[in-house]
Amino acid sequence: MIRFIVSRLARAVMTIFLVMTFSFIVLRLSGDPALIIMSPDAPPEAIAAFRKSWGLDDPIWLQYFHYFAAVLEGEMGRSMRDGRPALQIVGERIPTTLLLTLPALLLKVSIGIPSGVYAALHRNSRIDRLVMSFAVFGFTVPSFVLALVLVLVFSVWLGWLPTSGADSWRHAILPVVTLGLGGAAVLARFTRSAMLEILGQPYIRTASAKGLAWSAVVRAHALPNAAIPTITVLGFMVGSLLAGAVVVESVFAWPGVGRLLVVAVSNRDLAVVQVILLLVALTMVAANFMVDLAYGIFDPRIKQAAPGGAK
């Protein structure tokens, strides 16, 4: 188990290093923050001063060296836009994003998994077709289109909910629903396919033939085995809790991490982008790690096959 954790951690560190190096190079080579942040209306001397001030006229290898030397000392840097520590800027946005993504995750799970299971158990029924139609709809309609439709109906026509902002719980309803419906559709599809595959397995027939109640067969034999692909998808969803709402946050002017990422990337605000990427990578790595552990719980054969696992 220790070997397993250590190898996972080593891989995580390497992943994070590569993500940060790659993003550093891409961001620094694809735009000059001075010109973007100062705007082309600024006098050229002011733009040059900004560049010099932030060390952007140093060779890129020297900037890279400065950057990683500081990161290794625990300095995550400051925003070039306003000089505040990047960690503080991102940290302020995390709760706001979680206010959207956690309820949305709950919505995805509470709608997606039961409807997927139900559809599989009633294959080719009207309900199955209805669930699958919903899933295809949720799968294919881009979130910004769904968001605009919801705003048009519930805000502009009916006047029930606010169009944008983050001032109260009412402001969160439409973005949560937008995020939740799309994810629920994905989960429903995966859960249904996994369940159908398991329900066709010989051991399910055997369990039924032995006289077990159908509900017990489903609960004890079908659901745990069908959980593996669903957990994998769920892992991705948990991993994208921090930056998985970029489009929705932009459409609803929700001041979370996703919108900050858009602004920081477009401004080439390196320190802020790097902190977000670091947190996203960490969340993703942690989610994958938890998924790996969950595999072992749902299917002990995986644990046994893992290096250091029980023989």
């Binding site: 001063a49 500081a70 300095e75």
Partner: peptide, 23 residues
């Protein structure tokens, strides 16, 4: 040097950033 990763970069002072006199 490398101010965007350096928390002791001078941003804590009252002196405006370099671009201010240029503007």
């Amino acid at each position: 040097p490398g101010a965007y990763v350096n928390n002791n970069s001078g941003l804590a002072t009252k002196t405006p950033p370099m671009e201010v006199p240029q503007i």
